[in-house]
Write a protein that binds this DNA or RNA. Structure first.
Length: 482
RNA sequence: GUCUCCUUCGUCUAGCGGUUAGGACACCGGGUUUUCAUCCCGGCAACAGGGGUUCGACUCCCCUAGGAGAUGCCA
């Protein structure tokens, strides 16, 4: 049967690279097997609920190309896919479990629980066996009860994890009687996820490894409900450089932050896919479409992985270089504009994109590389004379090169121009590199620039010659003083 | 504390009893080159430790150590 795999984030914070990798693997597991990818929003924590986070989830999954077959916006036979809209069902399940003796009402308040936790490992099960009299006394007191699952005291629970293999745990080691239904009437994860996975006929659950320890509990709940559980695969964590679970302390980790900096979705997908999965060979580059074809749970790793920004950026550089210049130009627009760099749309910005694409690995690096397009400014002689030359020599070079730069050729014409400049260098007895550096410093105001002829074309002949004249003036003054 | 999971170069990983332990990022050299970069070539660098099993262990088993996670009316 075709698998049904879900991704079930909770809208309590921006979508995180760790979460999104789980989403990717779940998506791929579904696609690779011709199954269905389901998105479900787990918003049962009303205190931490954040509508911005919800929008962020939809927005970024879409941006990455992880389209869900069923879920909010897409609909589906098991709607609604927003958990808070399913609480009536969750409550009914909880009541059923109470009726069948698999769960019970607990009247302990927060203060007591905190005290108990200090000395016990979790809840002390005080309300597990209340007499009807005790119970009605509590009910009359008006305390809103929670419903707790009655974890068996004896025996053990075992299951086969798709990734970890056989996992077995003594029932006495399971979290003692966790809450299923909170006093506000909302289910906890333990109830909601199980009930919804069942209702939505989920066949495979790929989730973070932090859930391994509660997996046996979940199996117990499935059994108590008389339901068939899905297969589980617990994915290893994504860690920061310190080896700890990736979090706020580790710099940018939210998907939207990468996106804002100019990480391409194909790069993030490619990088994340290789963080914990491999095709079994030496391939490094995978498109989403390829991954959909060759992904397999059996090739997932079991150990945690450190998120490496440098490698992500290397992938990103690769994908930037693979972009057609016209498309890169469009992608670059907002970054350049925000930095106050104006380039006419069309040929000029495409030419600029061509210059930048081998020089940036993240889009937001573009302004620094295109800084030569900033306002004209007066440069001191020190910034106009290459190391091996004098001000007088630099002045002569500019003077003689200016006419050659009158009309900037493109294509093959560049070679002719270069030949003439080489000739000039020879005549002046300077190295061609030094001659070029002299022009570079005068026209770009920097010792570092993209290839000069292309840069000058983007700059425009008018500004080019204004800068040449200005620099020449400065150099001549400096030469006289010397 | 208790329970669970994990352990190959600095990082991501390949390896599924016999390999000079392979690749990628990063780093360091070199080449191409008008600077920078791209690109190409080369180099550095790993099986956590100890016991078994076996003719033979990175590969299988056990122990130790280390790391991570869980232990919430958060997910």
């Amino acid at each position: 049967m075709a698998p049904r795999v879900r991704f079930a984030p909770s809208p309590t914070g921006r979508l995180h690279v760790g979460n999104v990798r789980t989403a990717l693997f779940a998506y791929l597991a579904a696609r690779a097997a011709g199954g269905t990818f389901v998105l479900r929003i787990e918003d049962t924590d009303r205190r931490r609920y954040d509508p911005d986070a919800l929008a962020d989830i939809y927005d970024n999954l879409t941006w990455l190309g992880l389209r869900w077959d069923e879920g909010p916006g897409a609909g589906g036979p098991h709607a609604p896919y927003i958990q808070s809209e399913r609480v009536a069902g969750h409550r009914a399940v909880a009541e059923r479990l109470v009726a069948s003796g698999h769960a019970y009402r607990c009247y302990c308040d927060a203060a007591r629980l905190e005290r108990v936790r200090a000395t016990h490992n979790g809840y002390d099960r005080r309300c597990r066996n209340l007499t009807p009299e005790q119970r009605s006394r509590h009910e009359e007191g008006g305390a809103a009860p929670v419903i707790r699952f009655r974890v068996p005291l004896e025996g053990s629970t075992r299951y086969d994890d798709l990734l970890l293999g056989s996992i077995e745990r003594r029932n006495s080691d399971i979290n003692p009687d966790p809450v299923l239904l909170k006093s506000d009437g909302f289910p906890t994860y333990h109830l909601a996820a199980i009930a919804d996975d069942h209702d939505m006929a989920i066949s495979h659950v790929l989730r973070a490894q932090e859930w391994v320890s509660s997996a046996p509990l979940h199996l117990l709940i499935f059994a108590a409900c008389g339901w068939q559980p899905p297969r589980y695969a617990h994915l290893p964590a994504v860690n920061g450089p310190d080896g700890k679970k990736l979090g706020k302390r580790h710099g940018a980790t939210a998907v939207h932050e990468f996106r804002r900096r100019g990480i391409l979705p194909e790069a993030l997908v490619n990088y994340l896919a290789l963080l914990g999965w491999s095709a079994g060979d030496d391939r490094e580059f995978f498109s989403l479409a390829e991954l959909e074809r060759c992904f397999g749970i059996d090739r997932l790793g079991r150990a945690g992985a450190v998120f490496d920004h440098q490698k992500l950026e290397w992938f990103n550089g690769h994908y930037i270089r693979g972009l057609p210049p016209a498309r890169l130009a469009v992608a670059l627009r907002p970054y350049l504009r925000d930095a106050g760099i104006d380039v006419a749309e069309g040929a000029a910005e495409t030419a600029l994109a061509e210059l930048l694409r081998e020089r940036i690995s993240v889009l937001d690096e573009a302004p620094a590389r295109a800084a030569f397009l900033g306002p004209d400014r007066d440069l001191p002689a020190a910034e106009l004379v290459p190391r091996r030359l004098t001000a007088a020599a630099a002045a002569t070079i500019l003077q003689q090169a200016s006419p050659l730069l009158e009309h900037l050729p493109s294509g093959d014409g560049e070679h002719a121009l270069e030949d003439r400049l080489r000739e000039l260098a020879r005549a002046q007895g300077v190295k061609f590199g030094d001659l070029m550096m002299t022009i570079r410093m005068a026209t770009t105001g920097s010792k570092v620039s993209p290839p000069l002829f292309g840069s000058l074309r983007v700059l425009g002949e008018q500004r080019l010659h204004a800068r040449l004249a200005r620099a020449l003036h400065t150099l001549q003054a400096a030469a006289e003083e010397a």
